[in-house]
Simulated assay, not measured.
Amino acid sequence: MTVAKLLGTCCGIGYFRPAPGTWGSLAALPLTLALHLLGGFPLLAIVTLCAIVIGYWAAIEMTRGQEDLDPSEFVLDELAGQMLALWAISLPAWLHGLDITALWPGWVAGFLLFRLFDIWKPGPVGWADRRKGPFGVMMDDVIAGAMAAIGIVVLAGLSHGVPGL
């Protein structure tokens, strides 16, 4: 197995069936928790950004000369997008010294929103997905992760009351 395939499949998680993308997203949950506990939001942010860059490279390598430009076993995009979605939990927990596990509703919402946007592909997610090749492979999940993060913030605001309303 090549390094690109090892990384792109998240050490083989992409071969899990059914729904390899969901397995890739699930793998991001304990990884995000561990990164947050080890180094807070800054470590999570650095690793997420590295995963996006490495994912782009791995997507180039895994699809080189292939007809399938978005192989289902490539799940580093889901891992990176899910981690990005969870920035909306990690950042406030880190800034305010909160126990990130106490924010469990945000974890659930982040997972469900990310999977919804990744599968449904609304607006900019669909636009990125239609771009064939490594850019589309990575960016649809990055955008879905950003949208899920926004969704977490909106839901938290609704749940806890938005100041001034």
Rank of each mutant, 00 (worst) to 15 (best):
A148G: 10
I119F: 12
P105H: 01
G123V: 03
G106D: 02
D118H: 07
L113A: 13
W120K: 05
A149M: 12
W107G: 05
G133L: 08
D140I: 09
A128V: 02
V125G: 04
R130V: 04
G145L: 00
W107A: 05
G110T: 04
K121V: 00
M147V: 12
F114S: 02
I150H: 13
K121A: 00
V108L: 13
R115G: 08
M138P: 00
K121Q: 00
R115Q: 07
V108R: 07
G106Y: 01
F117I: 05
W120H: 08
A149G: 15
P134E: 14
I143P: 13
G151W: 08
D118W: 09
P122G: 12
R131T: 01
A146S: 14
M138Y: 02
P134H: 15
R130D: 09
R130K: 13
V108H: 05
F114L: 01
A149Q: 12
G145K: 01
F135A: 14
G123C: 09
G151P: 02
F111L: 05
I143G: 13
I119Q: 13
M147Q: 11
A128S: 10
D140K: 11
K121E: 00
G126P: 14
A109M: 06
A146F: 14
D118L: 07
V142R: 08
L112R: 11
A109N: 01
G145W: 00
I152S: 10
V137S: 03
L112I: 15
G145T: 02
F135G: 04
D140R: 10
G151N: 04
K121P: 04
V137P: 03
M138I: 07
P122N: 11
F114M: 03
F111H: 08
